[in-house]
Design a protein around this nucleic acid. Structure first.
Lengths: 231, 231
DNA sequence: TTTATAAGTGTAAATTTCACACTATTATTT
DNA sequence: AAATAATAGTGTGAAATTTACACTTATAAA
């Protein structure tokens, strides 16, 4: 029989393991939900693509490691980010045993540091046209997408993918891209206006239509009064 | 600037970290949702209680580590278990840096090995009357409860906490214990009978009432025809 | 002036959720 | 033998939510 649980916390002889974070960096661009990937230029799995990852160091919070990796690649801070799942099959990385914890980040494509991204040979791919990914990274994408779909239906996280001012058609296209289905325009707007946390500005965005669409902004305070967010 | 991402996967100089799994073992007993905890008999945080945990060894899948820990403590196999969250604050364990991945297990209290549990000084506590827990284990319980509440509303996982044959009053009490709220009997039954995956047997359980309540069983096949599970 | 394009708006039907109270069965008590 | 006490079991109508659906408006471009 094994040692009692927890007891061996006091022992130092426990095996240690390499721990990584992999970031699913989502952006929204011209109606497409996109994912930022880096090209893998070495074996094994050379020329496939990979999530942005990095190793966790010993004095660093797990969450901080994810923020660091994101910052190093994109230059972004204060980004919406959420842990998704820990992937820990012993043979998931053929080179060595690595446990990877995935994080999903929603970034504003206009804000990130393009230069930095390019220097890492990173590239945006539409979520429905991803290249081949290494290891179990496809499974990671699936898990993150499932969670993202749930999150945007039950909370105002989607707004992190849009600029401060946005139009309702943009917002709807964002939801359609994330959920992978068409949404009825009137029903969509009805739900939003019932929740009453979007402020219509006196400005229109004419870049996407002749008529122009009113710009809105998300109002944090009004959102706090919302009982049940649902889209 | 740091090394490019992923590249240093090929380097062996990465710091390694102790990785643990902590199991939230839920049981249902006499109308109460209960959690199995072990008493901590040593410093730091002596005499608090703790989740059942163990360390992940290098050639072991993360999920397998959780199953092993559960089996070692309860003797149970083939248990419903699901990863909840990875907890990774650098100082969450004051003794040494440990990243802990939590798993939620739903066990049948009648099946586990009582002797084994007692030999580990483990004890069941009602979920609404937990003792003080070590480290961030209260946060772990919260996270697991949130997920469990969501899961039982959207899928047939609650049945893992009941024996093969169970009555509708038992099932309702289980839901009430998990959700922490009273449920209307008629509405509850209406939803279940609409989904049509419970088979009423020709037996009654008279242990909990004079009249006796019909026993039911969950029918896997019929469940597969259910479009939307919702309670 | 016409045309083409996307923005914006309301209503009715269907479905789902919610609130609510009495009868049935039987072991136990008197 | 009758009364009692305790839990099981059952249906209906109101309210809220979700869904389906089509035309008018504004304006740049032709």
């Amino acid at each position: 029989m094994q040692k009692p649980f927890q007891i061996n916390r006091a022992y130092k002889e426990v095996q240690q393991i390499t721990v990584a974070v992999d970031c699913l960096i989502f952006g929204f661009n011209q109606g497409n939900l996109e994912l930022l990937l880096v090209h893998r230029g070495f074996e094994p799995e050379r020329d496939k693509w990979s999530l942005i990852g990095g190793f966790v160091v010993n004095d660093e919070d797990l969450d901080d490691a994810a923020y660091r990796v994101l910052r190093e690649l994109t230059g972004l801070e204060d980004v919406y980010m959420e842990q998704v799942h820990a992937f820990g099959k012993a043979d998931r990385d053929p080179y060595e045993r690595v446990i990877s914890v995935t994080y999903s980040a929603l970034v504003l494509k206009e804000n990130y540091d393009d230069e930095l991204v390019r220097s890492y040979k990173a590239q945006w791919f539409p979520i429905d046209a991803l290249p081949q990914l290494i290891f179990d990274h496809e499974e990671m994408v699936e898990a993150a997408m499932r969670r993202l779909r749930r999150r945007v239906k039950t909370g105002p996280v989607g707004f992190n993918l849009l600029p401060e001012k946005f139009t309702l058609p943009q917002l709807q296209r964002l939801y359609e891209a994330i959920l992978g289905e068409k949404i009825d325009k009137r029903n969509f707007r009805k739900k939003l206006s019932a929740m009453n946390f979007l402020i219509r500005l006196d400005e229109k965005d004419k870049s996407e239509s002749k008529k122009g669409a009113f710009l809105y902004r998300f109002d944090e305070e009004k959102y706090n009064d919302v009982k049940h967010f649902s889209i």
